[in-house]
Nucleic acid binder design. Sequence first.
DNA 1: GTGAAAGCGCTAACAT
DNA 2: ATGTTAGCGCTTTCAC
Lengths: 336, 336
Amino acid sequence: MVKITDVARHAGVSPSTVSYALSGKRPISEETRRRVEESARLLGYRPHVGARALAGRRTNVLALVVPLRAGINVPVVMRFAVSVVTTARRYDHDVLLLTQEEGEDGLRRVADSALVDALLVMDVQLHDPRLPLLRDLDRPSVMIGFPADSAGLTCIDLDFRAAAEACVEHLARLGHRVVALVGSPPEVYVRQTAFAQRVVQGFTAAADRNRLSSAVHPCEATPAAARTVAEQLLREQPALTGVVVHNEAVLEPLIDAFEELGLRVPGDLSVTAICPDELAENIRVPVTSVALPSAEVGTRAVELLMKKLGGTTVPEATLLPPRMTERASTAPRELA
Amino acid sequence: MVKITDVARHAGVSPSTVSYALSGKRPISEETRRRVEESARLLGYRPHVGARALAGRRTNVLALVVPLRAGINVPVVMRFAVSVVTTARRYDHDVLLLTQEEGEDGLRRVADSALVDALLVMDVQLHDPRLPLLRDLDRPSVMIGFPADSAGLTCIDLDFRAAAEACVEHLARLGHRVVALVGSPPEVYVRQTAFAQRVVQGFTAAADRNRLSSAVHPCEATPAAARTVAEQLLREQPALTGVVVHNEAVLEPLIDAFEELGLRVPGDLSVTAICPDELAENIRVPVTSVALPSAEVGTRAVELLMKKLGGTTVPEATLLPPRMTERASTAPRELA
DNA sequence: GTGAAAGCGCTAACAT
DNA sequence: ATGTTAGCGCTTTCAC
C-alpha cells in the first residue's frame, strides 16, 4: 500500500505538504502542487479512508436508506439509488446502502460509528419514528418526502399536490366535468405517506375549483383490483370521462379494463397519470402524465446534502414543480 | 462521542480488555466480559470504524457492484441487493453501493483506499474487463455469474443450463415434440453474458437428447417484439406446442400474442419460463417456471465472502440447482 | 510557503 | 486472565 509518506518522499516534500497540496486547504506554490500531484498519480496513491476519518472526521461516505415495503415501486427506488450514487461520486463521495428494516438503530449505528458523514432517507412517513433521531443526530440529513412536521429537517420531493392539480386542470381544460382519482393501495394511506395524501388534496382542490364532480378510489396493485375499480367507477359515476391514476402497477390493467368494458381511451375516457415517464411512454396507449422525477430528486438530494456538509444553510423544503407531457390518452370530451 | 477508554474506565478495566471482551479474540473471564458488555451498552459505545480500520485492517464493509445497463431486470437487481444487505448485516457488515459505470477504477479505488474488505460483483460478462483486477486484488471477491475462465475466482449463479434443461424435459414429458426458446434481447448475447448462452446450450442439448425439433429466438424486451416473435414462430414451426421463455419483459405479452393468434395456453401451447416466481405467479395465466432465486444468490454470495474473509477456502464454482414450479401454463400435448 | 509533531480511537503484540 | 504500549495513516495545529 502506498501512503502519504511515500508520496512525500517521492515529491521531496513533507507529508503535511502532500496533504495540503491534495486538499487545497492552504496555499501551496504552483510548482510544489504540480510535483505532489504528479507523484501521487505516479505511485497510485489512495488516502486510507480510515486514517482520514480518524484524523479529519470525514469519511466521504453517505448513507442511503431505501424502503422495501409493500406498495413501493422498485424501479423507481432503483433509479433513485443509482442517481444518488452517481451524483455522490461527482462530489467524491461513496454511498452506503441501508434498508428501512434496520430502522432507527441502523441510522444511529452508522452515525455513531462514524461510518458516514451524512444521511439520505427515502420514503418518509407523516409521523416517521426516525424523525426525532434525525433531528438530534450531529450529522446532516436529507429526507425524500415530507413528514407532518418538517421543521428542522431538510426535505425534498415532487410537488405531488401540484402534480395532481395539473392533471385535473388538464382534464378540465379538455372539457371533462366528471373525474376520478385512482390512487395508491390502501396500505399507503394507512401508513400515512404524505405524498399519497397530497395527491388526494390536490386532486380534490382542483376538482372543486373547476366545479367538477369527483371521486377518489384507492386501489390494490393488482390487475384484478384494477378491473374491480373500473367497474365500480362506471357504476358510481356513469358520466365519468376523466381519470387520474396515481398507481404505477395498475395503470395499464386499468386502461385494459376500461376498454374491455367498452370505453375507448381517449375517445370515451381521458386518462392521465402521475408516474415515471418510462412507464407512461411504454404502454399500449401512451399516457399523458406528470413525471415522477426519481433521478432528479436523487441528484438534488445529494446536492443539498453536500451544501449542508459544506456548512451552507439550505431551504427546509424543496418541492419540484410538476412537468406534464401530453400523450395519446387524453382528448377533448366528446359531447354526446 | 463515547470511546473505548470511556468504557474501560466505566468497567474498571483496560482498553485492550474492552477490545478483547467485545471481539472475543482472547479468553476473558465471564465476570469481566459481562461487566464490559454492560458498560458498553449503558454508554452506547460504538467503535469508531475509521480507527478500527486503521488499527485492525478491517472495515466490516462490503462493496456491491450493481449493473444498470440495457436488458437487465431492475426488480431482480433490487431484490438481490436487499438480500445482500440483509445477509451482510447478520455478519455485522455494511454494504457500499457501486455502479457498474465506475468500472475497474471504482473497484481499485474502494480496495486501495481500504474502504471495503471484500467485493461482490454482479452481472459478470464472459470476458469481463474487471477479471484481471479482481484476481490481483488483495481483497476477496465473489462474482454473480460466470466468466469464460473462472479459474482463481469465486463464482455463483443459478445453474442456467440445468434450468433450461428442466424446462425442456418438462415439455418433453408432457409429449411435446416441437419446441422453441424465446430468449434475451440480442444485446445480451452480443455482450456475451454467460447465463444467456448457457440457457441456449441447455435448451438445445435437452431438445436434441429428447429428439425434439427446436429453434431459438432472441427477443427485444417490448410487447411489439413479442408479437413479432410469436408470429414468426408459428410461421416457421407450425407444429409448435412448447415454448420456453427466458425474458421477463415479454413473458406476458408473448402469451397475449399467442392467444390473439388463436392459440390457447395451455390448450394449444404449453409455456414455461425461467423468471422470478413473483412474475410467474402474477400474470394472467400463471406460468410453470424455474425460479430466478435472486435472494438466495445474494445470501449465498455473502456467505461465501464471509468464509473467504475468515480464511476458509470455498469452491470456485457454485451452481444453484433449478427449482421448477408447475402452474397453469403447461399441459399434455393434445393429439390432433 | 513549508515542515515537525501531536494526536484521532482502536487493535494486537508484548508484557506479566 | 489482564494490562501496557506501540503503532495504523492521516490531518492539523504550531512553528518557522
